[in-house]
């Protein structure tokens, strides 16, 4: 392949290898030295009380110096081959397989001979397995029963704010919105309800709900019927409630019907009344399960 004399080649090659090796030795050495310096710096910064960005940068140099040096060592200062190795066949020789099957059957026949004992053992172990599963399933939580059907709203529950103060009919301006809870359950995740006072005359009341919105107040469950996020954004201009999780839009003026996005059902409406002292109260609880759907819900 080469026309030059072997002696010349050998000398020349040797010097080339030596220079290049020296160069990489320098690179590796500088990497390790940088890493050491950064480690010392890290110690000092930590001693001084620490600083997140400096710690990150110094850790980068510490780890990076080590990594770069070691990889360079492994790539340029040790032989790379290529080396070749045979793959032994994964499959065992047929004779080995036969002996394996025979050995296994010799043992299993001894067990199967006492088949009643074997079956009894199987049943006992299986029964124990099932029994031990029980606490891992059943002890974890209550049966759902009516849990998903009811909230803390009852007939006559006063509407309170998250801090527990009662809401008067005069508290909200037209166009105002407030998150309310049944008295005694302020902050509750399931009972959270959004109270809105939109402009009066545009409301299209659903049949049977004529008396649910005194003085133009409307109250809907705040739990989205899609995936259960709080329907937290009220767009006053379009009178729509937006769920910020998956962008379902509910039209406040037509009984919180879903008008856009993935929500399948309207937000349940809470029937309101105003008591003699001017406080807002629930006429009754929600007449349907709030929030996302589930199997038992018809």
């Amino acid at each position: 392949m080469s026309s030059s004399t072997p002696e010349f080649d050998e000398l020349d090659q040797e010097s080339l290898v030596r220079t290049s090796e020296r160069r990489f030795e320098n690179v590796v050495g500088i990497s390790f030295a940088l890493s050491l310096l950064a480690t010392i710096g890290l110690g000092v910064v930590y001693w001084q009380g620490g600083q997140t960005q400096v710690e990150g940068a110094l850790l980068f140099v510490t780890l990076g110096g080590l990594g770069f040096g070691i990889v360079a060592w492994g790539k340029y200062l040790v032989p790379q081959g290529p080396y070749v190795q045979d793959r032994e066949e994964l499959k065992s020789p047929a004779s080995e397989r036969e002996v394996f099957i025979e050995s296994f059957e010799r043992g299993s026949n001894l067990i199967e001979r006492r088949s009643f004992l074997a079956k009894l053992l199987g049943v006992s172990v299986a029964a124990f397995g099932v029994i031990t599963l029980f606490p891992f399933i059943r002890s974890l939580g209550p049966q759902p029963k009516k849990m998903l059907y009811v909230t803390n709203w009852k007939k006559g529950s006063a509407l309170v704010r998250s801090d527990g103060t009662k809401v008067r009919a005069s508290d909200l301006e037209i166009g105002g919105i407030l998150t309310v809870f049944p008295e005694g359950h302020a902050g509750g995740a399931i009972s959270q309800t959004v109270l809105i006072r939109p402009s009066f005359q545009d409301i299209v009341t659903k049949p049977g709900r004529e008396s649910w919105g005194p003085q133009g107040y409307l109250a809907y469950s705040k739990v989205c019927t899609h995936a259960g996020c709080p329907v937290g954004l009220y767009q006053e201009l379009t009178q729509q409630l937006l769920c910020p999780c998956h962008q379902s839009l509910f039209d406040v003026m037509t009984g919180a019907n879903p008008v856009f996005g993935p929500a399948p059902r309207p937000l349940p409406q809470l029937p309101l009344e105003i008591d003699s002292q001017g406080y807002l109260r629930a006429q009754a609880g929600y007449d349907e399960p709030i929030g996302p759907g589930f199997w038992e819900r018809a």
Binding site: Q53, G56, L59, G64, F68, G69, G74, P82
Partner: peptide, 30 residues
Amino acid sequence: VVGVAMWPAYALQAGGFFFLTAAVLAALGG
């Protein structure tokens, strides 16, 4: 199989690569 030997080339390369990965994660973290 054709490639580099486990010891020392692959061990050094792979071991060093751990530090390089950790270094990038440290830079991101900091």
